[in-house]
């Protein structure tokens, strides 16, 4: 077997808010007046934004603000009531199958199969996304070395600690090299150090041209994003880089920005 050398010290943390030059200003996600109503309740109210290739786009909001619903519309899990969405160049309403082929998704509920081994989970999702056995094998070897997971390769996923599971779930979500990956509160329930390690993987993915759309309610994570949108009661109340937002709201950190905006919320968390 050929040994693959992989540099582990890649993806150093970049300066907060400072984007590297984006040569290609390709729009990977475009939302125009995207709206979702459940009966009389408007969960997502005419939101519009654009996300560029290789960007880390943070999607913040209190519980019940509509983040998950908005994200589900973009992934094709839920159909919009009105408005338009284009993901990876395909319309979310008329071309959901093409959208699905070009995105990755990691849900807040940890979502790999606990009764399958690490490599079996990878193989399954590789197969679902139509990768060949050859590709899967090569990439799995690479991934195991990168994650330092070689010992865990044959373990059942249910036996791994949560931080490991989250890293694995993220790696599986981008295994097929999607154009954009949606992360729905990916680091729930782990400590800041584990979260930081998880974010190294995210930076590594963007370095490979994958766009990241991430919802979170951890403000330390918000600081890691290139741009952040803050949702209040189904609408986007603020959208800019963390540095600009802090300047605009005269806040020391993202948490203060968030508190100022979230105070406006009239909707009670259900």
């Amino acid at each position: 077997m050929k040994l693959i050398f992989f540099t582990c010290q890649n993806s150093p943390f970049r300066g907060l808010g400072g984007r590297d030059t984006i040569n290609n200003m390709e729009k990977v996600i475009v939302a125009e007046s995207l709206t979702k109503r459940f009966g009389h309740f408007t969960a997502v109210d005419h939101i519009s934004f654009e996300v560029e290739k290789g960007e880390i786009f943070g999607f913040l909001g209190a519980n019940g603000a509509g983040k998950t619903t908005a994200m589900r519309m973009l992934c094709g899990l839920s159909k919009q009531t009105s408005g338009k969405g284009v993901v990876a160049g395909f319309d979310i309403a008329s071309q959901p199958e093409l959208v699905k082929r070009n995105i990755g998704y990691m849900s807040q509920k940890f979502s790999l199969y606990g009764d399958l081994k690490v490599w079996e989970n990878i193989e399954l999702f590789g197969g679902i996304y139509g990768m060949t056995d050859e590709q899967i094998k090569l990439k799995t070897d690479e991934l195991m070395i990168k994650l330092n997971f070689e010992e865990e390769r044959n373990k059942l996923v249910s036996s791994l600690p949560l931080g490991f599971k989250q890293k694995l779930a993220f790696s599986v979500a981008i295994f097929h090299n999607p154009r954009v990956v949606f992360l729905d509160e990916p680091t729930g329930g782990v400590d800041p150090i584990t979260r930081r390690k998880f974010w190294e993987l995210i930076y590594d993915a963007t370095a490979h041209g994958i766009t990241v759309f991430v919802t979170t309610h951890y403000m330390d994570e918000a600081e890691y994003c290139d741009r952040v949108s803050i949702m209040v009661d189904g609408r986007i109340e603020a959208l800019d880089s963390p540095a600009n937002l802090k300047k605009q709201y005269q806040a020391k950190n993202m948490d203060e920005v968030f508190q100022q905006l979230a105070r406006k919320a009239k909707r009670v968390d259900s």
Binding site: C75, G76, L77, E97, K100, R101, I103, Y105, S107, K109, F110, S111, L112, Y113, G114, F125, I128, Y129, G130, F182
Partner: peptide, 13 residues
């Protein structure tokens, strides 16, 4: 219940 259905639904399966 386990939430894996979401992953299957966003996949091209």
């Amino acid at each position: 219940e386990m939430g894996t259905m979401e992953i299957l639904l966003v996949s091209p399966m």
